[in-house]
Design a binder for these strands. Structure first.
Lengths: 150, 150
DNA sequence: CTCGATGCAAACGGTTTGCATAATC
DNA sequence: GATTATGCAAACCGTTTGCATCGAG
């Protein structure tokens, strides 16, 4: 059990939530996976170790993680995926292989400040999502077509 | 029938799609509504005038509009909504009244360029979504609580 | 006249709900 | 021991599909 999971455990206790093996397993699986999994993917992955795991528990836990600020929902076309990186950043989805990558854009916190100064909205969250075709998939497409990448 | 709809009509013909009353009605309803409606909302709104309208046609047409670059999908938590404003901009959702507002952030095209220069991704789209509580709802909440807005 | 678009109804898939049981604190 | 979390199965709801019919070009 690593330090991130221990922090989660501590946070649960502090906020009056119970520490359960399911919660730890789900959070661990989310943090471990670089792929930004969907709730369902996560459910299948965790169920390999905990065969009794139910979908409801995964959905509940993900909601809890979002509340605690340990995860964010990504709303890409057609599917909701989860990001266990709590640091503000953008994401980019490859529409071909469906992988999602983290993207550090230095302008982001800047945007937040500007928004705050320009309106009376109480800002609670933000998502910056890009989609396109990743370098690997571009290469593959070029090979299949027998043509160079433009 | 206004100029925007006429442009749509022209674009359909140019690209080899047929001009149908349904397509025009759906597009008109989308552009008219400032609320960034969901597909279902749009379906109900259009059906008032065209009782035979089917959900499938609304979904098909929205997909077509996105293809043509006349609309974008917004992926807010739990629902997909549509924006008939083709100009690159951010959106902000009020989680209380569910209204979505357009937001012009001058940095956005800047971000796009930076992304292009920093990776080999072929960029196809982007969404910049904020959520929070709008000024009106903040006032209402303050009134209900009998407390001042902080 | 031909082919693309529509309407309808049924199927789909991800997510949520209700409730009895189990486990944490 | 009290109360929260879990597992299960059924319900939900927005969206998609297949197919016969309609209508734009």
């Amino acid at each position: 059990m690593n330090a991130t999971v221990e922090r989660f455990q501590k946070l649960l206790t502090e906020r009056g939530y119970r520490v359960t093996p399911q919660r730890l397993a789900i959070y661990e699986a989310l943090v471990e996976s670089a792929s930004h999994p969907s709730a369902e993917e996560l459910y299948h992955r965790v169920r390999d170790r905990y065969p009794m795991m139910s979908p409801a528990t995964v959905y509940n836990t993900l909601q809890l993680l979002v509340e605690l600020g340990l995860a964010t929902e990504l709303g890409f076309p057609g599917e909701t995926r989860y990001d266990g990186n709590p640091h503000l950043h953008a994401n980019i989805l490859c529409i071909r292989c469906r992988q999602i990558f983290d993207l550090d854009l230095p302008d982001l916190s800047h945007i937040e400040k500007e928004l705050a100064s320009r309106s009376d909205f109480l800002l609670l969250g933000q998502r910056h999502e890009f989609f396109g075709i990743c370098p690997d998939c571009r290469l593959e497409e070029a090979e299949q077509a027998g043509e160079p990448v433009n």
